[in-house]
Design a protein around this nucleic acid. Structure first.
Length: 1082
RNA sequence: GGGCGAUUAGCUCAGUCGGUUAGAGCGCUUCUCUGAUAAGGAAGAGGUCCCUGGUUCGAAUCCAGGAUCGCCCA
């Protein structure tokens, strides 16, 4: 890629935020994003999906993280030749939006919402949802601004919105399809519920409301029903089970007791609180804890398994129980012997574990006939015993038999109920119990866990399919697959998709208002689109939301169908995004597009989305198509502040992304996020860290380009053409570029931007601090080969950097005269194997190491680098020596020595120390290693080295056996003798000849003066090409030194004349001598 | 309580298949170089590789248990 030097002017004092604004304008005016897509028309698509954020909150710095990772891979894949559509999207529905509106309108409960217009629920919902619709995009402008500012290329104009009619219609079609497969059903779900607010709370809300309270807990006796004991039962007439409960109010809903099938239980004789003795059954490990020290174990124990099916008398019997008030024992693995009695009271209406245990047991037919819970069907809410109303008081099933409990909050009745149990002789013991209990974060009311009818998707039935689909996905980091996500899938339960709320996709289920003759349940119809609804009802909805959709009824088969009141879980919206964004299947074009972009190559969100979007995408895709919706998933971690604290408004440590972007620039933030660590580990954000990236990467890169531009300009302006030849350094940096390209390509292909970025960073360091540094004279001379090599390297960097730091990369590319209008229209570079020279790279590494040793020897000797020395004596053999000879000029220059001298081996400079090469010898000797090590360390290193050089065998004797050692079995290193200017590293050492004679001293002095002349030039503000007249005065020895080296000095400082008198001005001190330096432009 | 992850220099992080004296950058001290750089180079100080036990000739690395922190769930 040889091209004429560019005439770019690259300002070394560049402000990156200003540069980015300029580049963004150029992208807009040249229409670069659209063209980057157009030029890939017909190319193989690479599918990226934007997980839709909600724009009702201000974007934070963690959104910058998400957006830059969503940007880097699409840019890379576009350059790789793919067509990468990037469509934005917005999540519009859901509780976060509703809560924001509730706050804004000062509402505190569903009751408040439904009375926004007093007494008119419909009008209230209309007004509330209108407010939600307004609120959704409160911060849309900030989001758009942030997106553009960080350089995230995504189509914002055509972004999909989950509240649009077409989107809703697509979600409906998916539900209809799932229903046709029998995957949609209504059942019950136990939720944390505030009886005062009349609403269920999300787990997030529950988490903020825990308080420590004291409750009354009770050990309750459940007498077994003797005539239902089997012949083999370990129990006898008169025995009781004992259960422990911290919520006595739930005993009215007790239908079963659970034991652990593998735990040992015993019968025990124990007095109750009134001293009355009973024979009770508890887990053996808990006898003393539950029954007290006076308990006496009767007979031998038996496993919980043998208690299964035992029937007992329920402590409280609500009216209408089919069993006359009897419960049965079932087995459940979750029963532990950590606390309680090992027998657990189950009230499926008020506990999720209880609910699931009974569901499983009923499904397995584990209940004896005639027991209420035997009829339990999770899909039929009427089979669940729940005698508590949503207002938190017992309903008439309880109050008709126990009127004293009417009208009171059930949780306040615990003490009364315990007292009644005691009176009836069923209380074994009671206990005050202090624990942390959830309360409503809004009103402080204790929450109760409460079963409510809910709609489900039967995902547990396709658990294996979910796991199989997950198996095809590549996760970053890898452990998510089998760990967090895999575990979650293995524990999959049916997805509760309905919410008794207002602002969401309406559940498209219309139910008959009456139960048809001969059927047990109302008939229901799932509507698959707004068009279908229009066909059935004659009503065409413009807005599919509540309350309008609630108005739509239709008649079929003599039945009136009305919609159920629920809306859908927002996650169902986002999980439908692959087809709903296209309006599939209703829109034919959209359907065709969807068919071709069905599976994402890449999605990227926060780690918390394993339970959110990553799951909803997978679940819906598996239910509908039995395949994974994505191939690669990248998870991002949390951003903490610089002290490792979570950012929160109350702590005042929230980083404003716009402030950071204005100060450092988007590329600086991008670079920080990409290279500081693997993104899923989470970040400790600090301005310092971002600034370091600018200082250590962006600025050196920019200044290297600026350096290039300056000398390219000078060369272009020069009258005479200069000849140039390719040097080892040129070949080296070209080879390094290819190596870097290869690493970056492989890393980005594997979704590892950290490794790619770090490799590019290392390359820039090598370019700036070695290639340019060692080639400066060639640039001063206008060497066209050096210039074009540097330009190629910079263009190479710009291209590799394009996905990561798109602004700086593009500005460099354009300024350096890249062939396209933008680097983002260029192809990703293929690795040019012919330009790769790994031997040269290794040699250069050796040469740099030699320089490092030489500089260390310099520092140790106290002779600074400006003072020329006669020679460096280098210990090296074989490849190392060849490398150093090959690159000798680089080394003599850098060390400021006249010549390099080699000694064949270290013997002349020091002693060879021997060490065993454990990696080679370990497997061979195993336990004998200690002896081998001792034997080797006893050898004379220099003699061994000499022997190996001569090809003679080296033998050690270990426990009477001789073992021959080869060169690979030994590590040789040099030991530094005292008092020499020598530095060593491994087998490699550099010593300096420290004798400075008069000639060398004069040369050093001349160079010291020269340095002062350069300072004077800079102080005078001359351009680097200005010719000068130089006048010197002062110390004679210094002037003599300059006379001796006048040609050299004059050439270095571009002096056309040198005079040794008449200089005026303040003297400067050079190596302790006073010299006056005067420079004048000619 | 369960699942997953993390813990290496004052800070931010590397550390390959178990192998030799555990590295880098920042910061600090001292010195140095400079026709690009807010840069570069050299030296120095700074380590219980979270702890305990195990496997092994050999453990930052593998195994078990524990501690602390984080995320997710209950």
């Amino acid at each position: 890629m040889s091209a004429p030097p560019s005439r770019a002017v690259i300002d070394p004092r560049q402000s990156f935020p200003e540069l980015e604004a300029r580049v963004a304008e150029r992208w807009a005016s040249r229409n670069v994003f659209a063209r980057s897509l157009e030029q890939r028309d017909g190319a193989e698509p690479w599918v990226f999906w934007e997980g839709p954020p909600t724009a009702n909150g201000r974007p934070g710095v963690h959104h910058v993280l998400g957006r830059v990772f969503k940007d880097v891979f699409p840019r890379f894949q576009t350059m790789r030749g793919h067509r990468v559509e990037r469509r934005g999207g917005w999540d519009c529905h859901g509780l976060p939006v509703e809560i924001a509106v509730e706050k804004q309108l000062g509402l505190h409960s569903k009751h408040d919402i439904e009375n926004l217009v007093p007494g008119d629920t419909r009008a209230s919902i209309e007004r509330f949802n209108a407010a939600c619709r307004e609120s959704v995009f409160t911060f849309l402008e900030d989001w758009d601004r942030l997106t553009r500012r960080v350089g995230f290329w995504v189509d914002l104009e055509d972004a999909y919105r989950t509240m649009d009619a077409s989107y809703v219609s697509s979600v409906w079609s998916a539900l209809k399809e799932m229903d046709e497969q029998g995957r949609l059903y209504q059942g019950n779900k136990v939720v944390p519920f505030c009886t005062r607010c009349g609403t269920a709370l999300s787990s997030h809300e529950v988490a903020q409301g825990y308080q420590d309270i004291k409750d009354t807990s009770a050990y309750v006796r459940l007498p077994v029903v003797a005539d239902r004991l089997g012949p083999d039962s370990p129990l006898q007439d008169g025995d009781s089970l004992v259960v422990w409960t911290t919520t006595p109010w739930t005993l009215w809903a007790n239908v079963a007791a659970a034991v652990n099938p593998d735990v040992e239980y015993v019968r025990a004789q124990a007095p109750d609180r009134d001293g009355v003795g009973h024979v009770v059954v508890v887990a053996r490990d808990l006898v003393e804890a539950a029954l007290g020290e006076d308990a006496e174990i009767l007979g031998s124990g038996f496993t919980g398994e043998r208690l299964a099916g035992v029937v007992y008398e329920a402590p409280f019997v609500a009216e209408g129980r089919r069993d006359g008030g009897r419960g049965a024992v079932i087995t459940a693995d979750f029963v532990s012997t950590d606390s309680g009695t090992g027998v657990v009271h189950l009230a499926p209406a008020f506990g999720q574990d209880d609910f699931v245990a009974i569901q499983d047991a009923a499904g397995a037919g584990a209940f004896p006939a005639g027991i209420d819970a035997a009829a339990f069907d999770a899909r039929d809410p009427t089979t669940l015993l729940n005698p508590v109303g949503e207002d938190g008081t017992y309903d008439e099933r309880v109050t008709s038999v126990a009127p004293q409990y009417a009208g009171r909050f059930v949780k306040d009745l615990d003490l009364d109920l315990v007292t009644e149990l005691a009176e009836r002789g069923l209380l074994h013991r009671k206990q005050r119990y202090e624990h942390s209990y959830p309360h409503c974060w809004r009103c402080g009311t204790p929450l109760i866990y409460y079963a409510r009818p809910s709609w489900y998707l039967a995902t547990a039935a396709v658990r294996d399919n979910l796991l199989a689909a997950n198996d095809t996905v590549t996760w970053h980091p890898e452990h998510i697959k089998e760990g967090r996500f895999g575990e979650w899938l293995r524990g999959n339960v049916d997805w509760a998709i309905s919410r008794s709320r207002y602002w969401g996709t309406p559940l498209p289920v219309w139910q008959s208002t009456t139960v048809p003759e001969g059927e047990e349940l109302p008939r229901r119809v799932v509507i698959g689109s707004l068009d279908e609804l229009a066909e059935r009802s004659g009503v065409t909805l413009d807005d599919p939301h509540r309350p309008y959709v609630d108005d739509v009824e239709f008649e079929e088969d003599g039945l009136t169908f009305r919609r159920v009141p629920e809306v859908l879980d927002v996650w169902l919206d986002s999980g439908a995004m692959p087809f709903a964004q296209d309006g599939a299947p209703h829109d034919p074009d959209g359907l065709a597009h969807y068919e071709q972009h069905r599976i994402a190559d890449f999605v990227c969100e926060g780690l918390d989305q394993t339970r959110g979007w990553f799951y909803s995408l997978l679940a819906e895709s598996v239910l509908l198509r039995d395949e994974a919706p994505y191939k690669n998933v990248l998870c991002l971690g949390l951003i903490l502040d610089e002290n490792g604290q979570k950012m929160s408004k109350s702590k005042g440590n929230v980083v404003d992304p716009f402030e950071a972007l204005d100060r450092f620039g988007a590329d600086a933030l991008r670079w920080y996020f990409f290279t500081s660590k693997q993104p899923w580990e989470g970040y400790r954000y600090s301005d310092e860290a971002v600034r370091d990236g600018v200082r250590l990467f962006l600025l050196p890169l920019w200044n290297t380009a600026s350096f290039y531009a300056q000398y390219a300009q000078i060369a272009a302006d020069a009258d005479e053409a200069v000849e140039g030849t390719t040097t080892e350094l040129d070949r080296w940096i070209a080879s390094r570029l290819q190596a870097t390209t290869q690493i970056a390509t492989e890393a980005l292909d594997a979704y590892d931007v950290t490794t790619a970025g770090r490799a590019i960073g290392s390359f820039v360091d090598e370019l700036s601090n070695w290639y340019v540094r060692r080639s400066r004279r060639r640039f001063w001379a206008g060497d066209p080969v050096a210039l074009s090599t540097l330009r190629d390297a910079l263009l190479g960097v710009a291209t590799l950097l394009a996905p990561l730091a798109p602004f700086v990369a593009d500005e460099l590319y354009v300024q350096l005269g890249g062939e396209h209008d933008s680097v983002h229209l260029a192809d990703w570079p293929a690795v040019d194997v012919s330009a790769r020279d790994e031997a040269l790279e290794a040699d250069m590494a050796t040469a740099r190491e030699t320089v490092r040793l030489g500089l260390a020897a310099r520092a140790a000797s106290g002779l600074n680098v400006r003072q020329p020395l006669r020679k460096a004596v280098i210990v090296a053999t074989g490849d190392e020596r060849a490398a150093i000879e090959r690159l000798g000029a680089v080394i003599t220059d850098e060390l400021n020595v006249k010549t390099l001298e080699f000694v064949a081996d270290a013997d002349e400079l020091g002693r060879v120390a021997l060490k065993p090469n454990l990696r080679a010898l370990g497997p061979r000797f195993g336990k004998g290693m200690k002896d081998v090590r001792a034997a080797i360390e006893g050898l004379d290193g220099s003699r061994v080295a000499a022997a190996l050089r001569a090809g003679e065998p080296v033998v050690v004797q270990v426990q009477g056996t001789d073992h021959e050692l080869g060169e690979d079995d030994l590590l040789m290193s040099l030991e530094t003798p005292e008092g020499y200017g020598l530095e060593r590293e491994g087998r490699h050492a550099v010593a300096l000849d420290l004798e400075v004679d008069d000639a060398l001293r004069a040369e050093g002095l001349a160079r010291a003066v020269l340095r002062q002349v350069q300072v004077a030039r800079q102080d005078a503000g001359f351009e680097v090409t200005d010719r000068i007249a130089l006048r010197l005065a002062g110390d004679e020895a210094a002037l003599d030194a300059v006379r001796t080296h006048e040609a050299y000095v004059a050439a270095e400082v571009l002096a056309e004349s040198v005079a040794y008198d008449g200089a005026t001005g303040a003297p400067v001190t050079v190596d302790g001598r006073e010299v006056v330096v005067e420079v004048a432009k000619v």
